[in-house]
Simulated scan of single mutants.
Amino acid sequence: MTYTFRSVSMLTLLLLTSLLTACGFHLRGEMGTGSDLKQLSVSGNDPVYIRYLSRAMERSGIDISIEAPWLINVIRVERDVDQKTVASAGYFEQRIAMSVVYQLQTSSGLPLFEPVELTRERYLTQNQDTPNASESEQAIILSELRQELITTTLRRIHSLSEAELATEAEKAIATEQMKQPVMESTVEGNQQP
């Protein structure tokens, strides 16, 4: 009897495992990508977001270093929680949103691309009689939104190659050098009486 129970339990466990792997389920871990981008620096004025973004990049195989040739500058991170409906029967709906604006730059701060803005939002029905639970739910949803934004950022970063970034850097440097003579002649022209 014990042998039969163990066999059935083992068979059930194997069946469930095979079903989970067949549907694409996998545990969190390193993000498997074919990117050749190996080193980045991260900067910005939101230390919490920067910390989570840096950890996610390290887990995905990107070394975070101050000496990196490329920089992700997180320009703005906004969190927004606002009530969308009037409370009825003690319940109301809230919109919880998070957005981030970042720009990929050279290590000297020269922009390679236009800033990218990503936004995620969710709606949550709240009970006005349980404010502590509402705050906890908001914190959980904001954490999930942050993770979604970071995952999207990682996918975009991993889609770039070192060669593409080098080409963009050359274009940005050439554009910057073309602006220099124009700016110098403008300054000299303003100095003459």
Rank of each mutant, 00 (worst) to 15 (best):
M1N: 05
M1Y: 04
T2Q: 09
T4K: 12
F5G: 04
F5A: 10
V8E: 12
M10C: 01
L13N: 11
S18F: 10
T21A: 15
C23F: 02
C23T: 09
H26L: 04
H26Q: 15
L27V: 04
R28Y: 08
E30F: 08
E30Q: 15
M31P: 03
T33A: 14
S35A: 13
Q39H: 07
L40N: 00
N45H: 12
D46V: 08
Y49T: 01
I50Q: 13
Y52I: 07
R55W: 06
R55T: 13
R55D: 15
A56Q: 14
M57A: 07
R59P: 02
S60D: 11
I62R: 00
D63A: 12
S65C: 03
I66T: 09
I66D: 14
E67V: 05
A68I: 03
W70K: 03
W70Q: 04
W70M: 01
I72H: 00
V74M: 04
R76N: 12
E78P: 01
E78V: 09
E78Q: 15
D80Y: 10
D80K: 02
D82P: 04
D82A: 08
D82F: 09
V86C: 00
V86S: 07
A87Y: 05
A87R: 03
A87G: 03
G90L: 00
F92M: 07
F92R: 05
E93N: 13
Q94E: 13
Q94H: 05
I96N: 00
A97W: 00
A97Y: 00
S99N: 14
V100Y: 06
V100C: 04
V101I: 15
Y102K: 04
Y102H: 07
T106A: 10
S107T: 06
G109W: 03
G109H: 05
L110N: 03
L110Y: 04
E117R: 14
T119D: 09
T119F: 10
T119W: 09
T119Q: 11
T119A: 09
E121N: 06
E121P: 00
T125Q: 10
N127A: 09
Q128V: 11
S134D: 11
S134I: 10
S136N: 15
E137H: 10
Q138Y: 10
A139E: 15
I140G: 02
I141Y: 03
I141N: 01
I141F: 02
S143K: 11
S143D: 15
E144F: 03
L145K: 08
Q147F: 06
E148F: 07
I150L: 08
T152L: 13
R155T: 10
S159K: 07
S161R: 08
E162M: 08
A163R: 12
E164N: 11
E168L: 08
E168F: 11
A169I: 04
A169W: 09
A172Q: 12
I173L: 14
I173H: 06
T175Q: 15
M178H: 09
K179T: 12
Q180H: 06
M183C: 02
M183Y: 06
E184R: 14
E188L: 07
Q192P: 02
P193R: 11
P193M: 12
